[in-house]
Design a protein around this nucleic acid. Structure first.
Length: 811
RNA sequence: GCCGCCCUAGUCCAACGGCAGAGACGACCGCCUUAAGAGCGGUUCAGUGCGGGUUCGAAUCCCGCGGGCGGCACCA
């Protein structure tokens, strides 16, 4: 069908703007996307895609995340599932508050405005969102359940307050969770973070460290499982004790994975922030030690851990005893020992650890070989030996292999009550306090008499006050709101002060998937019976950038709520699929880089359907892509062709068997590709079918067009609906069953058999599909080209790959 | 430094261990058009980053190297 023919037939042009708004209205009016909790004859399927932060407008990244997910959900719906595809907004967070300081606009206002704009953009996209179920995390109806969860966690010891060295971002003026520090810098603003000793609220995620390492029954990408496993960082070793001279009550505990090197411990190093430092430092060393500790505290993490930084440290003046070698060894402090890992102290074994080696060399500390690769001692070492070996210079343990030595020494310390085998994790408890306004108030009151008092459940929510100033100076605006801060103690009725810290917004997103199911409930965060219809989530999709943060917290909160009797399953989402990142000229799109691409101009020019299809056509969804809008012409032209094809007059002709095969093959291909999230090849298959149909005529073509529209519906919902209707199909195409293919028809009838001689292509034979090995071989051997190629050589063997190839190997 | 993913026409990408091409962009040539653009039809284009290995046969599996991206990193 060419333009000329179309004109002769007077087919009107495809104008996306003329149909897309109309269908958005109709779908809304007919409540097409409202998903009931049960639909007789249809199994429930919970398809969750990550909700966005209401940053202003939907950008290309949002489209890339949502449009393919929507297509996959629509496909499942046509396959007969009752598919829930909800959406909401991760509406608390720093950017809105920072914008408020800059633009003098209240975050609540800007957030509401942004959400309104983004909702209408989702509508323009044609996503099958059931908006009745929307959640907005900055509304008290939502965040009261954050507070409720906090209080339940508190009751169970899963939430606690502690003084700890925490990450502080000097620009955002708040503490951060470990997970929000990327290479020593604030995840958001990339400012180097510093350590501060503060009293803060934590969630006890470490209690679940071992369970979080198990992914039993989960269909999650290997990549994410590996990242989470590395993040949790389970390490088996031993905790061993060094008694401190003159301080019988203050023995130093160290963590090591190499207990077999214990005899080589010639010094002890504490982290500068270690609590014993102050106690054990001798008066003559105090000034120097204090100065070093002070300096370490004020040094950004990024400098402390920077590669090539020379090791520094100072001697405390105190001595410990190596209980195995009996030696008196000096206690140092050095910032290469991290207070946040293990026990914050190590036994320095310079002969067998590169860091200890460098430190010992610099400060002239003794180096003793205690592990030998060959069982011999070697006197002075040139380099540290960090490999496995046999214990030497280790008294009664001499000759013991390292692995056995590790076990024995750990056990021996255990028997003496001085430690024993232990496991340590890199994962720290989740720091949830934030010194910022735009978040969920932590429901705690501080009373002079009663101390730390949780706000009673019946007084929830603790509402975030609206009237605050945003100066950007002097910390959390909440502190200055007297009506909020000044309160009475729920226990004694006396004067009290409210907690002014708010919660990390990752608390909000750790359980939002439950709230969609019962978003108006004011008695519980979710009625269990409603949850049972949908949970756990069948399919979750979202950006790979959340591999650790959100996805780890979400798993933890699920397990914690399970242990509180609120949930009945171990994992929140059974199957996870991450789309890759969409970048612009190889760089992440971000406001600060000013390279954010807006989808709106493309929607205007090409229509939402073309943009949807283009997002899916860019390349493998899981790998991400570089944004290059040039290709959108391709999907746009395709839809124009479909339009003409579907509206052209049927042409007479005979049934076309080959075309019928192609149709059935395409049904199979598109379905399989959608199930595997291979949107790009699915789109290509649709294009191929359209090409074939446009060249055909007769009844098979007509049947093919009908099928094509059904297959197209998940990808381009508006045009599919329009053409379906114009061709007399019943409303709505999105409620039609997915076409069924005939497996026999989906296969080719005739195939091209490739004949090779010694691996080189010699002939191609068109033969019936399904030949036996002997038949294929016989066919190949009758080929003149093949005979000529074999010549006088002897046939050594013949390899036959059914319906594909015959390879004749000569000797 | 360690771990993972990726490298195929000018570009984006396809190819159960079996003919390197499904699809698209671009370019070029036509058609259409007063013209440009758009539209339509067609043509063009790589031996798969490099070097080995396994195999009858390797883009595909294995090893090494190079380049890109991501994660972790003084973690004891």
């Amino acid at each position: 069908m060419t333009v000329k023919e179309a004109r002769e037939e007077k087919i009107e042009r495809y104008v996306p703007a003329a149909i897309e708004g109309k269908w958005a209205d109709t779908w809304e009016r007919t409540r097409l996307y409202e998903t009931p909790d049960t639909l007789p004859g249809h199994e429930n399927f919970y398809f969750l895609t990550m909700y966005p932060y209401p940053s202003g407008v939907l950008h290309i990244g949002h489209w890339y995340a949502a449009a393919p997910a929507d297509a996959a959900a629509r496909y499942l719906r046509m396959r007969g599932r009752n598919v829930l595809f909800p959406m909401g907004f991760d509406a608390f967070g720093l950017p809105a508050e920072n914008a408020a300081i800059k633009n003098k606009m209240h975050p609540a206002e800007s957030t509401e405005e942004n959400m309104a704009r983004m909702r209408s953009q989702f509508r323009a996209m044609g996503a099958m969102i059931d908006w009745r179920r929307e959640v907005v995390t900055c509304h008290p109806e939502y965040y009261r359940w954050n507070q409720w969860i906090f209080l339940r966690f508190l009751e169970k010891g899963l939430a606690y307050r502690a003084k700890a060295p925490v990450n502080w971002c000097p620009k955002d003026l708040t503490v951060l969770a470990n997970e929000q520090v990327i290479q020593g810098r604030c995840e958001r603003c990339e400012t180097p973070v510093v350590k501060r000793e503060l009293e803060q609220w934590f969630f006890r995620i470490t209690k679940y460290a071992d369970e979080l390492l198990r992914f039993d029954g989960l269909d999650w990408p290997e990549r994410v499982r590996v990242m989470q496993t590395n993040w949790i960082g389970r390490s088996e070793g031993a905790e061993l004790t060094f008694p401190v001279e003159g301080h019988p009550a203050d023995a130093i505990r160290v963590f090591t994975t190499r207990a077999d090197t214990f005899y080589g411990g010639t010094f002890v190093v504490l982290a500068p922030e270690h609590p014993l430092v102050e106690k054990i430092t001798t008066p003559d060393r105090k000034a120097e030690v204090d100065a070093y500790v002070q300096k370490a505290r004020n040094t950004a993490e990024i400098e402390r851990i920077a590669e090539g930084t020379e090791k520094t440290g100072v001697f405390t003046g105190a001595y410990a005893r190596n209980v195995l070698s009996g030696e008196r060894i000096p206690i140092w402090i050095a910032d290469y020992v991290l207070v946040t890992y293990g026990t914050g102290a190590i036994g320095g074994v310079p002969a067998h650890d590169e860091r200890d080696w460098a430190f010992a060399k610099k400060y002239g500390l003794p180096i003793r070989e205690v592990i030998s690769p060959d069982g011999q001692t070697h006197g002075e070492l040139d380099v540290p030996f960090v490999g496995e070996g046999v214990m030497v210079n280790s008294g009664p343990y001499d000759g013991t292999p390292g692995a056995e030595g590790r076990r024995k020494i750990a056990e021996d310390f255990g028997k003496r009550g001085m430690g024993g085998p232990t496991v340590t994790y890199r994962l720290r408890d989740w720091l949830i306090s934030r010194q910022r306004y735009w978040g969920t108030p932590i429901p705690i009151v501080y009373c002079e008499k009663c101390g730390v008092v949780p706000v009673p459940y019946d007084q929830l929510p603790v509402v975030l006050p609206r009237d605050t100033g945003f100066t950007g100076q002097g910390g959390n605006p909440l502190e200055k709101v007297d009506s909020f801060v000044k309160t009475t103690c729920p226990t004694c009725g006396g004067p009290a002060r409210r907690e002014t810290d708010t919660m990390d917004t990752f608390v909000d997103s750790s359980w939002y998937m439950y709230r969609y199911l019962d978003n108006r409930n004011d008695k519980a965060f979710m009625e269990k019976d409603k949850g049972r219809m949908w949970l756990p989530v069948d399919q979750y999709t979202g950006g790979i950038e959340h591999a650790i943060l959100h996805l780890l917290y979400m798993r933890f909160v699920c397990k914690a709520l399970r242990d509180l009797g609120e949930l009945w399953f171990d994992e929140p989402a059974l199957r996870l699929q991450n789309q890759g990142m969409i970048v612009f000229s190889g760089r992440k799109m971000s406001k600060s880089r000013g390279n954010v691409q807006s989808p709106d101009q493309y929607v205007e020019r090409y229509g939402a359907d073309s943009l949807r299809m283009f997002m899916m056509f860019l390349g493998p969804w899981t790998q991400g892509s570089d944004w290059d809008a040039a290709g959108i012409d391709g999907t746009s032209r395709f839809l124009h062709s479909v339009w003409r094809l579907a509206l052209s007059k049927p042409m007479p002709g005979a049934p076309d068997h080959d075309l019928e095969r192609e149709i059935h093959h395409t049904i199979r291909k598109v379905g399989e590709d959608l199930e595997a999230y291979r949107f790009n090849t699915a789109v290509a298959a649709l294009m191929k079918l359209e090409n074939a149909l446009s060249r055909a005529s007769g009844p098979t073509r007509d049947e093919g067009v009908r099928t094509l529209l059904l297959l197209l519906a998940p990808f381009a919902p508006h045009i599919a609906e329009e053409l379906w209707g114009r061709r007399g199909g019943a409303y709505s195409i999105h409620q039609q069953p997915w076409p069924v293919y005939d497996p026999a028809l989906a296969k080719a009838e005739e195939i091209v058999l490739v004949v090779q001689v010694d691996g080189k292509l010699r002939d191609r034979l068109t033969v019936a599909a399904g030949l036996t090995e002997a038949e294929a071989r016989a066919a190949a051997e009758t080929s003149e080209k093949v005979k000529a190629s074999i010549g006088a050589r002897k046939v050594a063997k013949v390899i036959v790959v059914r319906d594909r190839l015959v390879n004749i190997v000569t000797s």
